[in-house]
Nucleic acid binder design. Structure first.
Lengths: 146, 146
DNA sequence: TACAATTAATTTGTATACAAATTAATTTAA
DNA sequence: TTAAATTAATTTGTATACAAATTAATTGTA
């Protein structure tokens, strides 16, 4: 009896997809207190490390299409967390910069990683192994295409 | 110097989110040949195992909200892969059933898991470890809520 | 047995996601 | 030096996702 390769149970991608969704669902109420969605939170984390950037750079780091970022960044701008201005050097580029309000938001987010950590509840070794596997897959998947 | 818990690099959820997205992106062109999206593919895999179901059952298995499934199932119906009919026993339930055309689609999908496996490119041990970790997280995250 | 509570699916509203087409600015090359 | 090619961001179109509200059917109970 040959193994059914299309059985859901035999898929490795399916649980990754589920995990991603469930984790984001878990974040949602915590992020709601900061008036952020998960993707907006990722973008804010990016700006807590890097004061100034542009759409292309953000997209390269977060693996988000510019067409996803454009409305998202407008949203963050409307909340006062970032500014959006065309570069004077090259007007094709949009300079995106975090505001003071955006920087202050970080303090409110400080408790979230620990809460999520408790929720995920992996040992140090498990988390490290998972981390490595995820980046290995990312590397491999990206190997051949753009 | 204390570790910055909000650094993107220190997040375990972020690479899971990236992996999920990148894997789905990788599936897309292969599934396009079957006229399926990734979520539609998941639902079809479900029906390749279970001929008949309903919205609630599908949602419980695939962790998809009924409001996501309603339009998706209508789409699969319009492609002729499933049928949708109110149960005569309890008209609240929608009986969803795979068609012959839907069953035949499986043959065309048979090569996809191997292609994706090559793309992910993990050893047997790595894949097993990852699989276990994903289901552990799913279990843990679901522990407290509904 | 009516009426309240529950249940299943749908609708509505908001926010991703990404491919493809478009726009506008800059660079390359004939 | 100007037309073609490239580049960055936006717009458009389609498809998830899920919470909250709604609708319709069934069940529980006073």
């Amino acid at each position: 009896m040959k193994k059914d390769v299309l059985k859901l149970e035999n898929q490795i991608c399916f649980p990754i997809y589920l995990c991603s969704k469930e984790i984001i669902r878990k974040y949602t109420p915590w992020l709601k207190e900061l008036d952020l969605t998960y993707t907006q939170y990722i973008v804010m984390m990016y700006f807590w490390e890097k004061e100034k950037s542009n759409v292309k750079e953000i997209g390269n780091t977060l693996l988000l299409d510019s067409s996803t970022l454009t409305p998202l960044l407008k949203k963050l701008e409307s909340k006062g967390y970032i500014t959006r201005d065309r570069s004077k050097v090259d007007e094709r580029n949009l300079e995106v910069m975090i505001t003071d309000k955006g920087k202050k938001l970080k303090a409110k987010a400080l408790s979230i990683p620990e809460k999520m950590g408790k929720c995920i509840d992996l040992s140090e070794e498990e988390a490290t192994a998972l981390y490595k596997l995820m980046y290995k897959i990312l590397m491999n998947v990206e190997r051949n295409d753009g």
